[in-house]
Design a protein around this nucleic acid. Structure first.
Lengths: 224, 224
DNA sequence: ATAGGTTATAACTTAATTGGATATTAGATA
DNA sequence: TATCTAATATCCAATTAAGTTATAACCTAT
């Protein structure tokens, strides 16, 4: 680093942790980076232009690289350690985005496994078809923070519903919770909490295609 | 804005919400800005240099403008709306810092009143000696988020102790909680929760100078 | 000294919440 | 129509939490 670098400034980027739950496992959308650049798999992202608010950059990256719009997105945290991008000084604002799995059908989805040995808060490990994916930059640590945030907000915010289709069964909600928490939950207490919370209402319709007793379909109660 | 601006980039800054509790009220350290610049009172801050991690910038601003080191600091969120600084494009990473009041004796401290009318999440209002202070930039909205974060983390994290001296009474802890929550709490349940949590231990010493029965002094249990 | 006043601390009673097991209901299939 | 399975409802024990009341400790004033 030369002395002149002191008088230039960091670049600002947004990175997106686009999460979904498939078959009881938490997944994240990753893009494979070319070998001659920074190798490994990374969350999609882009620079914040001078005439853009960070949220606008998020929308742009979403339409460029993903196509679909997530049901919910929120800011997670900003990462700005000195060596995190070997190509130069980048401060990344990371956003957490949640979609139902149908929306991300044709994207590269990696299963996220959290490598928390006893203590809370370690980095996450990404797998695809059972093989461990190398993650670029500090994205393993960031994904660990993503899962921590998801777990923390799970039972006092409606994030689980953002991972489900418009109409869903109570079993599906429980599957999403279990995927995020990484542990099984008891059915009766879970159902009670969910219904007592008053955030969802039955639609009057029922699941179809099931071999056995079809479950009630619920939807999120509208605000008014 | 000219077309060329598209090819320049935003500046990155850190802003510090340095909070304390005095006489049962939440206070924030603010600096008065000169009239010919951006008028009003603002949180102290500074730009992130090219050779600094944001946490380093926080340390630098603290030593430049405050002198004392806070007991606890953590990242709150990043604010990057287009018009937030009239002088140019600035993306601010806001940090929340907590100190006991003694540390900030000679600084300008404003009492923070939260202007949440029923609904959670509005902007905060700052007062000094009863008079409302004009806040610069988007700092009123940021202070609202600060209080929201404090309230949210209060009972599952040790932030309250960062606002107290090394040795404290249970009453003092309750006063801090009540100041942050803006409502009174019942004493017996509060004491039980605190002691059952196992985070504090009695020192064996007692409060002095009290007119009536002196309270036990506690301290935060060391990690090992 | 001693009585009175005030606050810290402890004990107790009551209510609410939660976990987990069990029973019942409903629909699909053979 | 009998049987299978999962959805839903019911129930009880056990734990947890709230709030009231009682006791203890210390300072102050007389």
């Amino acid at each position: 680093m030369t002395n002149l670098d002191k008088y230039t400034k960091p670049s600002v980027a947004v990175d997106l942790a686009i999460m979904t739950v498939i078959d009881g496992d938490l997944h994240v959308l990753l893009v494979n980076r070319p070998e001659d650049d920074v190798a490994g798999w990374a969350m999609p992202g882009g620079f914040v232009h001078i005439d853009e608010a960070p949220e606008d950059s998020v929308e742009r990256v979403l339409s460029e690289k993903v196509g679909a719009k997530p049901v919910h997105f929120e800011q997670l945290a900003t990462y700005g350690a000195l060596g995190r991008d070997p190509r130069g000084r980048v401060v990344s604002i990371v956003y957490l985005a949640l979609c139902p799995p149908e929306v991300l059908r044709d994207a590269d989805l990696a299963k996220v496994v959290i490598d928390w040995e006893g203590e809370i808060g370690g980095p996450a490990v990404a797998q695809m078809n059972g093989a461990r994916l190398p993650l670029a930059f500090d994205h393993a640590a960031i994904l660990g923070d993503v899962v921590k945030r998801l777990r923390g907000k799970l039972d006092y915010s409606p994030i689980a519903f953002a991972l489900l289709p418009d109409r869903f069964t109570l079993r599906e909600v429980q599957e999403v919770h279990e995927a995020i928490l990484g542990k099984p939950l008891n059915k009766p207490p879970f159902r009670r909490k969910l219904l007592d919370r008053g955030m969802i209402v039955p639609t009057g319709e029922f699941e179809t295609g099931s071999a056995y007793r079809p479950a009630k379909l619920f939807e999120v109660k509208s605000k008014e």
